[in-house]
Write a protein that binds this DNA or RNA. Structure first.
Length: 110
DNA sequence: ACCTTGACAGCGA
DNA sequence: TTCGCTGCCAAGG
């Protein structure tokens, strides 16, 4: 990792505790790189560290980014389930979708 | 410099 | 909820 940004992202991914998941954008945000979700994806695509909990990174809607049937998809699903994460139909359950900006600002269900 | 591609995200229909 | 479009950033040809 020559780039400090990449280091931040990797660190953010490592910050994700077992049994929990985070979206790409979420990871980027935590790494102090808002709007760099795709960068996280690129980074993971070229990741070579087996210790990196890449399986805890899913899409914002909780779906696994790999196409169903892919070996990587099975692997991620398998690892998540191994940590007690509920995965159904290639989607992670138990993960609350990020509240809308309005809801977040208003803080009221309306 | 221009266009295409990718483990993405948000909004509207 | 699912599908489609748009916005986004970085890398490769």
């Amino acid at each position: 990792m020559e780039n400090p940004a990449n280091v931040r992202v990797i660190a953010a991914i490592r910050q994700i505790p077992p049994g929990q998941v985070a979206g790409y954008g979420e990871v980027a945000r935590r790494a102090g790189l808002p709007g760099r979700a795709r960068m996280v994806a690129r980074l993971l695509a070229g990741n070579d560290d087996p210790d990196l909990p890449w399986h805890r990174v899913v899409r914002a809607d909780g779906r696994i980014a790999f196409p169903a049937g892919s070996r990587q998809h099975l692997e991620q699903c398998r690892r998540l389930r191994a940590e007690g994460v509920r995965v159904e139909g290639g989607r992670v359950r138990g993960m609350r979708r990020s509240p809308s900006l309005d809801e977040r600002l208003w803080g009221d269900p309306g």
